[in-house]
Design a binder for these strands. Sequence first.
DNA 1: TTCCAGGGGTAGA
DNA 2: TCTACCCATGGA
Length: 304
Amino acid sequence: MNSRSPHRLRLSTPAPFDFRATCRSHGWVVLSPFRWDDERTCLHRIDHLPGGSVVALEVEPAPDKSITVIVRTSSPLAAVELTTIEQRVRWMLRLDEDLSEFYTLVEDHPRWHKHITPGAGRLLRAPDFFEDIVKTICTTNISWAGTKRMVANLVQRFGAPLDWDDTADAPRAFPTPAVLADAGESALKETGLGYRASYVADLARRVAAGDLDLNAFTQFNGTTDELRSELLTLKGVGPYGAATLLMLLGHYDYLAIDSAMRTFVATHYFDGTAPTDTAIQELYEPWEDWKYLAYWFDPGWEDL
DNA sequence: TTCCAGGGGTAGA
DNA sequence: TCTACCCATGGA
Protein backbone atom coordinates (compact mmCIF):
# COMPACT_ATOMS: atom_id res chain seq x y z
CA MET A 1 0.00 0.00 0.00
CA ASN A 2 1.48 3.33 -0.96
CA SER A 3 0.59 6.98 -0.80
CA ARG A 4 -2.35 6.45 -3.19
CA SER A 5 -4.13 4.04 -0.85
CA PRO A 6 -3.26 4.95 2.72
CA HIS A 7 -4.45 3.38 5.93
CA ARG A 8 -6.88 5.49 7.93
CA LEU A 9 -7.20 5.32 11.70
CA ARG A 10 -9.90 6.99 13.75
CA LEU A 11 -9.02 7.99 17.33
CA SER A 12 -11.48 9.03 20.00
CA THR A 13 -10.70 12.20 21.96
CA PRO A 14 -11.40 13.33 25.52
CA ALA A 15 -13.72 16.22 26.26
CA PRO A 16 -12.85 19.02 26.10
CA PHE A 17 -10.21 18.61 23.40
CA ASP A 18 -8.71 21.18 21.05
CA PHE A 19 -6.57 19.65 18.31
CA ARG A 20 -5.05 22.89 17.08
CA ALA A 21 -4.26 24.12 20.60
CA THR A 22 -2.70 20.76 21.46
CA CYS A 23 -0.44 20.68 18.40
CA ARG A 24 0.62 24.31 18.79
CA SER A 25 0.84 24.25 22.58
CA HIS A 26 4.62 24.77 22.74
CA GLY A 27 7.68 24.81 20.54
CA TRP A 28 7.82 21.06 19.91
CA VAL A 29 5.63 21.32 16.79
CA VAL A 30 8.32 23.21 14.89
CA LEU A 31 11.01 20.66 15.72
CA SER A 32 11.69 18.07 13.03
CA PRO A 33 10.23 15.59 12.17
CA PHE A 34 7.03 17.40 13.16
CA ARG A 35 5.58 19.69 10.52
CA TRP A 36 2.46 21.76 11.02
CA ASP A 37 0.14 22.72 8.16
CA ASP A 38 -1.92 25.56 9.58
CA GLU A 39 -4.09 26.01 6.51
CA ARG A 40 -5.16 22.38 6.58
CA THR A 41 -5.00 22.06 10.39
CA CYS A 42 -2.85 18.99 9.95
CA LEU A 43 0.13 17.63 11.87
CA HIS A 44 2.62 15.84 9.63
CA ARG A 45 5.30 13.51 10.85
CA ILE A 46 7.59 10.78 9.53
CA ASP A 47 7.62 8.02 12.13
CA HIS A 48 10.08 5.16 12.53
CA LEU A 49 8.11 2.39 14.21
CA PRO A 50 9.77 0.05 16.73
CA GLY A 51 9.32 -2.81 14.24
CA GLY A 52 11.36 -0.99 11.63
CA SER A 53 8.69 0.40 9.28
CA VAL A 54 8.97 4.06 8.34
CA VAL A 55 5.61 5.70 7.78
CA ALA A 56 4.27 9.13 6.90
CA LEU A 57 1.55 10.29 9.27
CA GLU A 58 -1.01 13.01 8.67
CA VAL A 59 -3.01 13.73 11.82
CA GLU A 60 -6.06 15.95 11.56
CA PRO A 61 -9.37 16.55 13.32
CA ALA A 62 -12.52 14.87 12.02
CA PRO A 63 -15.97 16.52 11.95
CA ASP A 64 -17.23 14.26 14.75
CA LYS A 65 -14.48 15.56 17.12
CA SER A 66 -12.40 12.43 16.71
CA ILE A 67 -8.92 12.40 15.18
CA THR A 68 -8.08 10.96 11.78
CA VAL A 69 -4.63 9.52 11.20
CA ILE A 70 -3.70 8.94 7.57
CA VAL A 71 -0.82 6.48 7.34
CA ARG A 72 1.16 6.26 4.11
CA THR A 73 3.54 3.38 3.54
CA SER A 74 5.01 1.54 0.59
CA SER A 75 3.75 -1.84 1.77
CA PRO A 76 0.75 -3.01 3.79
CA LEU A 77 1.03 -2.71 7.54
CA ALA A 78 0.22 -5.53 9.93
CA ALA A 79 -2.56 -5.02 12.46
CA VAL A 80 -0.02 -4.85 15.26
CA GLU A 81 1.75 -1.99 13.50
CA LEU A 82 -1.50 -0.05 13.13
CA THR A 83 -2.17 -0.60 16.83
CA THR A 84 1.32 0.69 17.58
CA ILE A 85 0.69 3.81 15.50
CA GLU A 86 -2.60 4.43 17.31
CA GLN A 87 -0.89 4.10 20.70
CA ARG A 88 1.92 6.43 19.64
CA VAL A 89 -0.44 9.11 18.37
CA ARG A 90 -2.59 8.87 21.50
CA TRP A 91 0.56 9.36 23.61
CA MET A 92 1.75 12.19 21.35
CA LEU A 93 -1.49 14.15 21.73
CA ARG A 94 -2.06 13.04 25.36
CA LEU A 95 -5.53 11.79 24.47
CA ASP A 96 -5.67 9.69 27.64
CA GLU A 97 -4.32 12.26 30.07
CA ASP A 98 -6.73 13.50 32.74
CA LEU A 99 -6.46 17.28 33.16
CA SER A 100 -9.73 17.68 35.07
CA GLU A 101 -7.92 18.57 38.30
CA PHE A 102 -6.05 21.36 36.50
CA TYR A 103 -9.26 22.69 34.96
CA THR A 104 -10.91 22.70 38.39
CA LEU A 105 -7.98 24.65 39.81
CA VAL A 106 -8.21 27.13 36.94
CA GLU A 107 -11.76 27.99 38.01
CA ASP A 108 -10.32 29.43 41.22
CA HIS A 109 -8.01 31.75 39.26
CA PRO A 110 -10.15 34.24 37.29
CA ARG A 111 -7.33 35.55 35.09
CA TRP A 112 -6.37 32.03 34.01
CA HIS A 113 -10.03 31.01 33.70
CA LYS A 114 -10.64 33.86 31.29
CA HIS A 115 -7.44 33.15 29.36
CA ILE A 116 -7.45 29.37 28.94
CA THR A 117 -9.68 28.02 26.20
CA PRO A 118 -11.50 24.69 26.64
CA GLY A 119 -9.26 21.82 25.67
CA ALA A 120 -6.01 23.71 26.20
CA GLY A 121 -3.31 22.21 28.40
CA ARG A 122 -2.25 19.15 26.43
CA LEU A 123 1.35 19.88 25.44
CA LEU A 124 2.53 18.04 22.35
CA ARG A 125 5.21 15.41 22.86
CA ALA A 126 7.11 12.94 20.70
CA PRO A 127 5.64 9.45 20.43
CA ASP A 128 8.93 8.13 21.76
CA PHE A 129 10.60 9.29 24.98
CA PHE A 130 14.11 8.93 23.53
CA GLU A 131 13.26 11.66 21.04
CA ASP A 132 11.94 13.92 23.80
CA ILE A 133 15.09 13.48 25.91
CA VAL A 134 17.38 14.31 22.98
CA LYS A 135 15.29 17.33 22.05
CA THR A 136 15.28 18.55 25.64
CA ILE A 137 19.08 18.31 25.78
CA CYS A 138 19.11 20.32 22.56
CA THR A 139 17.20 23.15 24.28
CA THR A 140 19.86 23.70 26.94
CA ASN A 141 22.14 26.74 26.81
CA ILE A 142 21.21 27.54 23.23
CA SER A 143 18.83 29.88 21.44
CA TRP A 144 15.60 28.42 20.14
CA ALA A 145 16.90 28.89 16.59
CA GLY A 146 19.89 26.78 17.59
CA THR A 147 17.64 24.04 18.96
CA LYS A 148 15.68 23.90 15.72
CA ARG A 149 18.90 23.75 13.72
CA MET A 150 20.44 20.98 15.83
CA VAL A 151 17.33 18.81 15.73
CA ALA A 152 16.84 19.33 12.00
CA ASN A 153 20.46 18.38 11.39
CA LEU A 154 20.11 15.22 13.49
CA VAL A 155 17.00 14.15 11.60
CA GLN A 156 18.37 14.99 8.18
CA ARG A 157 21.67 13.23 8.72
CA PHE A 158 20.68 10.20 10.79
CA GLY A 159 16.93 9.74 10.34
CA ALA A 160 15.42 7.05 8.13
CA PRO A 161 13.63 8.29 5.00
CA LEU A 162 10.45 6.86 3.55
CA ASP A 163 11.46 3.94 1.38
CA TRP A 164 9.69 5.33 -1.68
CA ASP A 165 11.43 8.69 -1.51
CA ASP A 166 15.14 8.56 -2.34
CA THR A 167 15.59 12.27 -2.99
CA ALA A 168 18.34 14.04 -1.08
CA ASP A 169 15.96 16.29 0.84
CA ALA A 170 13.38 13.58 1.56
CA PRO A 171 11.64 14.01 4.92
CA ARG A 172 12.99 11.68 7.54
CA ALA A 173 12.05 10.17 10.87
CA PHE A 174 13.79 10.95 14.15
CA PRO A 175 16.92 8.80 14.39
CA THR A 176 16.82 5.67 16.50
CA PRO A 177 19.08 5.13 19.51
CA ALA A 178 20.94 2.41 17.59
CA VAL A 179 21.77 4.73 14.69
CA LEU A 180 22.97 7.51 16.97
CA ALA A 181 24.96 5.03 19.06
CA ASP A 182 26.67 3.74 15.92
CA ALA A 183 27.33 7.29 14.74
CA GLY A 184 29.24 8.14 17.89
CA GLU A 185 30.14 11.42 19.53
CA SER A 186 32.38 12.82 16.79
CA ALA A 187 29.75 12.38 14.08
CA LEU A 188 27.16 13.98 16.35
CA LYS A 189 29.44 16.96 16.89
CA GLU A 190 29.50 17.47 13.14
CA THR A 191 25.76 18.14 13.27
CA GLY A 192 26.41 21.17 15.47
CA LEU A 193 25.48 19.68 18.84
CA GLY A 194 28.65 21.02 20.37
CA TYR A 195 29.40 19.72 23.83
CA ARG A 196 25.90 18.16 23.96
CA ALA A 197 27.13 15.49 21.53
CA SER A 198 28.66 13.46 24.37
CA TYR A 199 25.38 13.53 26.31
CA VAL A 200 23.33 12.37 23.31
CA ALA A 201 25.93 9.74 22.39
CA ASP A 202 25.95 8.41 25.96
CA LEU A 203 22.15 8.25 26.07
CA ALA A 204 21.90 6.53 22.68
CA ARG A 205 24.59 4.02 23.57
CA ARG A 206 22.92 3.05 26.86
CA VAL A 207 19.46 2.73 25.31
CA ALA A 208 20.71 0.79 22.28
CA ALA A 209 22.71 -1.56 24.49
CA GLY A 210 19.71 -2.22 26.70
CA ASP A 211 21.43 -0.70 29.73
CA LEU A 212 18.75 1.98 30.02
CA ASP A 213 15.09 1.06 29.67
CA LEU A 214 13.09 4.17 28.83
CA ASN A 215 9.86 2.36 29.69
CA ALA A 216 11.03 2.76 33.27
CA PHE A 217 10.34 6.48 32.81
CA THR A 218 7.12 6.37 30.79
CA GLN A 219 5.60 3.69 33.03
CA PHE A 220 7.04 4.93 36.32
CA ASN A 221 4.98 4.03 39.37
CA GLY A 222 6.72 6.04 42.08
CA THR A 223 6.43 9.65 43.16
CA THR A 224 7.32 12.65 41.01
CA ASP A 225 10.35 13.30 43.22
CA GLU A 226 11.59 9.76 42.65
CA LEU A 227 11.02 10.08 38.91
CA ARG A 228 12.85 13.41 38.91
CA SER A 229 15.81 11.82 40.69
CA GLU A 230 16.01 9.17 37.98
CA LEU A 231 15.85 11.78 35.23
CA LEU A 232 18.66 13.75 36.88
CA THR A 233 20.96 10.74 36.51
CA LEU A 234 20.92 11.26 32.72
CA LYS A 235 23.98 13.16 31.48
CA GLY A 236 22.95 16.56 30.19
CA VAL A 237 19.76 16.63 32.24
CA GLY A 238 19.80 19.09 35.13
CA PRO A 239 16.98 20.84 37.04
CA TYR A 240 15.62 22.57 33.92
CA GLY A 241 15.81 19.44 31.77
CA ALA A 242 14.28 17.23 34.45
CA ALA A 243 11.32 19.60 34.87
CA THR A 244 10.83 19.71 31.10
CA LEU A 245 10.94 15.91 30.88
CA LEU A 246 8.57 15.60 33.83
CA MET A 247 6.14 17.82 31.91
CA LEU A 248 6.54 15.62 28.85
CA LEU A 249 5.76 12.60 31.03
CA GLY A 250 2.63 14.28 32.41
CA HIS A 251 3.95 15.63 35.74
CA TYR A 252 3.60 19.35 36.27
CA ASP A 253 4.78 19.93 39.85
CA TYR A 254 8.23 21.28 38.88
CA LEU A 255 8.97 24.49 36.99
CA ALA A 256 11.53 24.38 34.19
CA ILE A 257 13.27 27.59 35.16
CA ASP A 258 15.16 28.91 32.15
CA SER A 259 16.17 32.31 30.83
CA ALA A 260 12.76 32.81 29.21
CA MET A 261 10.93 32.11 32.47
CA ARG A 262 13.24 34.40 34.45
CA THR A 263 12.64 37.22 31.99
CA PHE A 264 8.87 36.70 31.93
CA VAL A 265 8.51 36.50 35.69
CA ALA A 266 10.79 39.49 36.27
CA THR A 267 8.75 41.57 33.84
CA HIS A 268 5.29 40.57 35.04
CA TYR A 269 5.71 40.01 38.76
CA PHE A 270 8.89 41.74 40.00
CA ASP A 271 8.91 45.13 38.23
CA GLY A 272 11.78 44.07 36.03
CA THR A 273 14.01 42.97 38.90
CA ALA A 274 15.51 39.52 38.50
CA PRO A 275 13.89 37.18 41.06
CA THR A 276 15.64 34.24 42.67
CA ASP A 277 14.61 30.76 41.60
CA THR A 278 13.06 30.30 45.03
CA ALA A 279 10.91 33.39 44.48
CA ILE A 280 9.76 32.01 41.13
CA GLN A 281 8.84 28.72 42.79
CA GLU A 282 6.89 30.54 45.48
CA LEU A 283 5.01 32.55 42.86
CA TYR A 284 3.44 29.43 41.36
CA GLU A 285 3.25 27.47 44.63
CA PRO A 286 -0.56 27.87 44.87
CA TRP A 287 -0.84 25.68 41.78
CA GLU A 288 0.63 22.72 43.67
CA ASP A 289 0.90 19.79 41.23
CA TRP A 290 0.10 21.98 38.22
CA LYS A 291 2.79 24.68 38.41
CA TYR A 292 4.24 24.00 34.97
CA LEU A 293 0.88 24.42 33.22
CA ALA A 294 0.06 27.47 35.35
CA TYR A 295 3.25 29.14 34.12
CA TRP A 296 2.88 27.95 30.56
CA PHE A 297 -0.66 29.31 30.35
CA ASP A 298 0.02 32.39 32.45
CA PRO A 299 -2.27 35.13 31.05
CA GLY A 300 0.69 37.52 31.23
CA TRP A 301 2.00 36.08 27.97
CA GLU A 302 -0.83 37.89 26.21
CA ASP A 303 0.76 41.21 27.18
CA LEU A 304 4.01 40.47 25.37
C1' DT B 1 34.90 41.51 20.12
C1' DT B 2 31.83 40.29 23.54
C1' DC B 3 27.69 38.53 25.22
C1' DC B 4 24.12 35.27 25.56
C1' DA B 5 20.71 31.72 24.43
C1' DG B 6 14.27 27.60 26.65
C1' DG B 7 21.79 24.98 31.34
C1' DG B 8 24.66 21.39 33.07
C1' DG B 9 29.04 18.88 34.62
C1' DT B 10 32.75 18.94 37.64
C1' DA B 11 35.97 20.19 41.25
C1' DG B 12 36.65 22.16 45.50
C1' DA B 13 35.14 24.10 49.72
C1' DT C 1 24.78 21.93 49.55
C1' DC C 2 26.92 25.89 47.31
C1' DT C 3 30.08 28.37 44.16
C1' DA C 4 33.32 29.09 40.35
C1' DC C 5 34.68 27.71 36.12
C1' DC C 6 34.27 25.51 31.87
C1' DC C 7 31.74 23.75 28.03
C1' DA C 8 30.43 24.38 21.53
C1' DT C 9 27.86 27.13 18.65
C1' DG C 10 25.87 30.98 16.08
C1' DG C 11 23.39 35.29 16.12
C1' DA C 12 23.11 40.02 17.80
